[in-house]
Design a protein around this nucleic acid. Structure first.
Length: 578
RNA sequence: CGGGGCGUGGCGCAGUCUGGCUAGCGCACCUGCCUUGGGAGCAGGGGGUCGGAGGUUCAAAUCCUCUCGCCCCGACCA
């Protein structure tokens, strides 16, 4: 391709709306064009990268017996009502009506459609297992799109769905997907951490997120440096150290009510009582799908709303509005699990309150707290749960020794063992007859990769101050050809190399009337793996020059050897991506 | 949804507080000359009505009201 025809428009200056490095470089390099918040066009260069990524994804999906298909973005609302997601998902799901006032949604994933297709055709155990996938547009009306192409409202996703005769078969297949994901990211030049994840509203029994560690990531996960335990902070469990406690509960002084006018927060209490954060019991009331829930945790921990929501299996959860509490006779700021025997209130005690200690808690009475509170004596702590946010430095719950570190990452892929969430009789009811002629329920898994986000992640990982450094596997072109010198002989040699190399490589010839400096800068910015230079000087020595973008190495060789040399270099770089 | 910031030729910005000459600068773009190993030089030139609407005023990019859009932090996130 000649540069003058390739519709490549690079920017010298950093667009003012871009802060994240991948956003800046993809805009400057002419890869993407913003159309609206969280909605981008892929310009020709970006399109080529996405195509290359898609090829890798297809190869790996096909390798684990995936079959590609295409499903529609516009979905009838009925399907989504059938699974309940029409009601469970908020404004993120775009709902609309057609000319006949029939209700539709714009699909944010395709469980509904794929399951509908599957149930139409699955009759016998002989039809199972299988895996269907597509690379297709997803629409999500994100509250806050961000970081260029990392969090979009319209994006391409490789979504895959596997169907099995039983959980056993899913468990056998799941690791294959896991390995395929690893390979996909590695072939794109990325090393990911596969972490235990929260499965959110998708439901199911197991879930992993593939994270690229990055300062521009929006997700947090923990890693144990000792045993290698990795998990999303929404799920991670840390050992909760005890506080200075009591040896013998029976020797503890009785509860004592203290007048604490207007003292509501933990920091107010710390000042009032002059004791540590960890000696207080923090109680927060939530409204979960209409139920009132009181969650209690030690003051030096924070409640993880995700863990709490999962524990309650709640779809919608919010901090209980004050009016509701007051109406029911509770006092925000002075809540505690002590003396609550209202059957309409569910009390959850975090495991940080397992330790016997003398603590301070609300008295469930306006302007009063209790001191000398002993968990287990003054309220039931025989059944505790983990609803605490993990903290940096907490001890790893798996090995019991290592310290947990919190890292930031970009979520590139997510795999779920869905189980029967969508095939259940309360959902879409998908069954088959086993070899005994008995009806059995189909078991599912689903697996997603964000394609543009993967492109952005590659840039986050592979760039320098001059621009992008594409791995050969995804680069939009292999070779950036620059001819220096105005003479006919330079031009002729350029033509010759261009047409010769074109049969084996994707060559971008910068044929613009520009100074060499401009072309060098653009070659670096766009990030093509190899730069090939023909110049007057080099021709005197019967040589051309190859510069490797990634390493900066420069090789000279005779024009007739270029093709072989490039092939060798490219193959070497490809091999290093496995 | 809460908080903050920004909208002025294609891009980056100044001008706005304190209304007033023809709205300015750099880059990009066009023409000519010159130049070809890291975003060259000289000369000439084209292009904006200041996000939008309404208002105040003799006079509005500038003041007021409403509104739209974009970015960042947070909440949310299949």
């Amino acid at each position: 391709m000649k540069r003058t025809r390739a519709f490549i428009h690079t920017l010298y200056e950093v667009p003012k709306d871009a802060e994240v490095v991948s956003h800046v470089l993809l805009l400057r390099g002419g890869y993407i064009y913003p159309v609206a918040a969280g909605i981008y066009a892929l310009l020709p260069l970006g399109h080529r990268v996405v195509e290359n990524i898609s090829i890798i994804v297809r190869e790996e999906m096909n390798r684990i017996d995936g079959v590609e298909l295409t499903m529609p973005v516009l979905n009838p609302a009925e399907l989504w009502k059938e699974t309940g997601r029409y009601y469970d998902i908020g404004d993120e799901l775009i709902r609309l009506k057609d000319r006949k006032q029939r209700e539709f949604v714009l699909a944010m994933t395709h469980e509904e459609v794929v399951t509908d297709i599957a149930r139409k055709f699955i009759r016998s155990y002989r039809d199972l297992p299988f895996m269907l996938y597509q690379i297709q547009t997803k629409i999500r009306d994100e509250a806050r799109p961000r970081a260029g192409v990392i969090r979009l409202r319209e994006f391409l996703m490789k979504d895959a769905y596997s169907f099995h005769g039983d959980f056993n078969d899913l468990d056998k297949y799941y690791p294959k997907v896991y390995e395929a994901y690893r390979r996909i990211f590695e072939r794109c030049g990325l090393r990911t951490a596969a972490i235990e994840a929260d499965s959110g509203i998708m439901g199911g029994s197991g879930s992993h997120e593939f994270m690229l560690e990055s300062p521009n990531g929006e997700d947090q996960f923990v890693i144990c440096s000792l045993c290698g335990y990795q998990a999303n902070t929404e799920r991670a469990i840390g050992v909760k150290p005890g506080v200075e406690g009591l040896d013998d509960i029976s020797s503890a002084p009785p509860l004592e009510k203290v007048h604490t006018p207007g003292v509501k927060t933990i920091s107010d209490l710390m000042k009032f009582f002059e004791i540590d954060r960890g000696k207080f019991i923090k109680s927060v009331a939530y409204l979960a799908d209409g139920r009132l829930v009181l969650a209690a945790i030690r003051g030096d921990f924070e409640i993880s709303e995700t863990k709490l929501r999962n524990r309650l299996k709640a779809i919608k959860m919010e901090i209980a509005p004050e009016e509701i509490l007051i109406e029911k006779g509770y006092h925000p700021g002075f809540l505690s699990p002590i003396g609550i025997n209202d059957p309409s209130v569910e009390v959850l005690i975090d495991s940080s309150l397992e330790y016997p200690a003398m603590m301070v808690a609300g008295a469930n009475e306006e302007d009063y707290h209790y001191k000398n509170v002993v968990p287990g004596r003054d309220f039931d702590n025989s059944r505790t749960v983990d609803i605490a946010e993990v903290r940096e430095g907490d001890v790893c719950a798996r090995c019991g020794k290592g310290k947990l570190e919190i890292r930031r990452g970009i979520e590139l892929g997510h795999t779920f063992k869905l189980g029967t969430k969508y095939t259940d009789e309360k959902s879409m009811n998908v069954t088959y007859l086993d070899d005994q002629g008995r009806e059995q329920r189909v078991v599912m898994g689903c697996y997603g990769i964000g394609i543009e986000r993967l492109m952005a992640a590659v840039v986050e990982k592979w760039h320098d101050e001059n621009g992008i450094i594409w791995p050969v596997s995804v680069a939009p072109y292999d070779v950036y050809l620059i001819v220096i010198g105005k003479g006919e002989s330079e031009k002729t040699l350029g033509e010759r190399l261009y047409s010769e190399l074109n049969s084996k490589f994707e060559v971008l010839w910068d044929d613009r009337q520009e100074s060499p400096g401009v072309k060098f800068k653009d070659a670096d910015l766009i990030g093509i793996p190899f730069r090939l230079v023909v110049s007057t000087k080099l021709m005197k020595e019967n040589a051309v020059e190859i510069k490797v973008r990634q390493s900066g190495e420069v090789f000279r060789c005779a024009p007739e050897d270029v093709s072989a040399r490039l092939e060798e270099l490219k193959q070497g770089m490809k091999n290093s991506l496995r």
